[in-house]
């Protein structure tokens, strides 16, 4: 074989190895990408929903924002699913109180999130959602979700069972994109 042919062959092999190595590195980065999800995320849920009222499945779409804080493996945050209750203290202006609390963690490259209106509470929450998936390229979450929405009225009698007037169950694909980074500042 002509020397130039050998050179071309080895160059092609080298390029192929480099490309494969690059793919490998990208894969490793993807697997380790759950190391920091702290930030403000735009989220979108799309799937199928069923209601206790109707006999037919329906398309489920939901868009919202969420804020996540990650400490080691643990993740805490809020989801802006629900209208915030205003909180007013002393003479200060009313401020929103985010109620849909997220608790989660990372394990083996996957992200696990569970949200309800206040974790570890005996009373019913209007919304429950669990999300399991992966963080891709450090700024995108692709996951599956299971969601329950309940519509009921609070009553003052704790012994009386709450009657749920409307209930929706949904499942499908959860996607989130990081909009902004946040820097955690240690409290005094």
């Amino acid at each position: 074989m002509h020397p130039t042919g050998h050179l071309t062959k080895w160059l092609c092999c080298g390029c192929l190895i480099l490309v494969l190595g690059g793919f490998g590195l990208c894969g490793m980065q993807t697997r380790d990408a759950t190391n920091n999800v702290t930030g403000i995320w735009k989220m979108s849920l799309s799937g199928i929903s069923f209601s206790i009222e109707e006999d037919m499945p329906a398309q489920y779409q939901m868009s919202s924002e969420m804020v996540l804080f990650q400490y080691g493996h643990a993740i805490y945050g809020y989801i802006g699913f629900l209208p915030f209750d205003p909180v007013k203290a002393d003479d200060k202006n009313p401020r929103p109180r985010p109620t849909t609390f997220v608790e989660g963690f990372t394990a083996n490259g996957r992200i696990w999130l569970y949200a309800s209106e206040g974790l570890d509470k005996e009373y019913l929450s209007p919304l429950y959602i669990s999300i399991v998936g992966r963080v891709e390229d450090f700024d995108t979450i692709v996951a599956e979700f299971i969601l329950m929405e309940l519509d009921f009225e609070h009553n003052n009698d704790i012994d009386k069972r709450l009657l749920i007037s409307e209930g929706i169950g949904a499942t499908g694909v959860f996607r989130a994109w990081k909009q902004d980074e946040m820097i955690l500042v240690t409290g005094k």
Binding site: F50, S51, I52, E54, D55, M56, P57, S116, L119, D120, Y128, S130, I146, M148, L150, I164, G167, I168, G169
Partner: peptide, 13 residues
């Protein structure tokens, strides 16, 4: 949980 049309949803904590 909820029993919907031919499906059911459940949450527990």
């Amino acid at each position: 949980g909820l029993v919907t049309a031919s499906r059911f949803w459940l949450m527990g904590h």
